[in-house]
């Protein structure tokens, strides 16, 4: 697969050439939700849950049927911990890219290697691509599958990220989805939506916050939220640093 991993290139160069899901920028308004475009290692045309997932689902179903758990309440509890999944590796990657231009270039040209160099090993075979927000472009990441999410870097996906309404609406009308997250972009900014697949996972490199020149790499990392790395949010304001 050819990988031309600079964000300025046409989006189609970044993902599998057999898919056109990555070409979901603001220019593409239709809903390309043909799932065979999710290019899986085994080319299954059906889903597969592994043994562990089946056992967890079985428990969840039975406990729900018997009134011991309510899925909604369970999600609230899970959300409480979603920012606590693993170390906040992604934030460290972003902060390093902000402070070290050579690392930034490496990250944009070979994210898998650049991230691995910080000893944040992903799952095997996981190919990371970093897309950079600029004054002209805002990137957002979506996935039709909850498995297409770089856990080791981003932690647990939020519940809404897996919801069907989010997945379809972010493609059709990303600006209104952003507005619901409290993010308003300058009107001229183009929004590009990237669809993660089993083979390619995206990470957004947000713009460095204004007035953050005096901050250390560690302080900068504290400003990087998970949502900023998905593109549904922006980094925190630099005045919020209280280390």
């Amino acid at each position: 697969m050819t990988q031309q991993n600079t964000p300025d290139n046409d989006a189609t160069n970044l993902a599998d050439p057999n898919t056109d899901q990555s070409r979901q920028g603001s220019a593409s308004q239709q809903l390309p939700r043909e799932h065979h475009q999710h290019h899986h290692e085994h080319h299954h045309d059906h889903s597969h849950l592994d043994d562990t997932a089946l056992r967890v689902r079985s428990l969840e179903t039975l406990l729900t049927q018997k009134g011991y758990i309510e899925p909604e309440a369970l999600n609230v509890l899970i959300d409480t911990y979603e920012n606590k999944v693993g170390p906040r590796n992604g934030a460290k990657v972003i902060a390093k890219a902000w402070t070290n231009d050579r690392y930034r270039q490496w990250l944009l040209s070979d994210a898998t290697a650049a991230i691995a160099s910080l000893d944040f090993s992903g799952r095997q075979g996981e190919h990371m691509v970093v897309v950079e927000n600029t004054a002209q472009v805002h990137n957002m990441v979506v996935c039709t599958l909850c498995s297409c999410y770089p856990w080791p870097v981003l932690g647990l996906p939020p519940t809404w990220y897996k919801s069907a309404p989010y997945r379809s609406r972010v493609v059709i009308d990303p600006a209104s989805v952003l507005a619901e997250f409290g993010v308003t972009l300058e009107p001229h900014k183009k929004i590009t939506v990237w669809d993660s697949t089993a083979e390619v996972r995206y990470l957004v490199l947000p713009e460095r916050p204004a007035n953050s020149e005096h901050l250390t790499e560690e302080q900068l990392a504290a400003l990087v939220t998970r949502d900023a790395m998905i593109g549904t949010g922006l980094p925190l304001d630099s005045s919020l640093v209280s280390l």
């Binding site: 939700r33 799932h35 065979h36 999710h38 899986h40 299954h44 045309d45 059906h46 889903s47 597969h48 849950l49 089946l54 039709t144 599958l145």
Partner: peptide, 8 residues
């Protein structure tokens, strides 16, 4: 899972 199209 086996009767569900991939991604649905």
């Amino acid at each position: 899972a086996k009767r569900t199209p991939h991604g649905a």
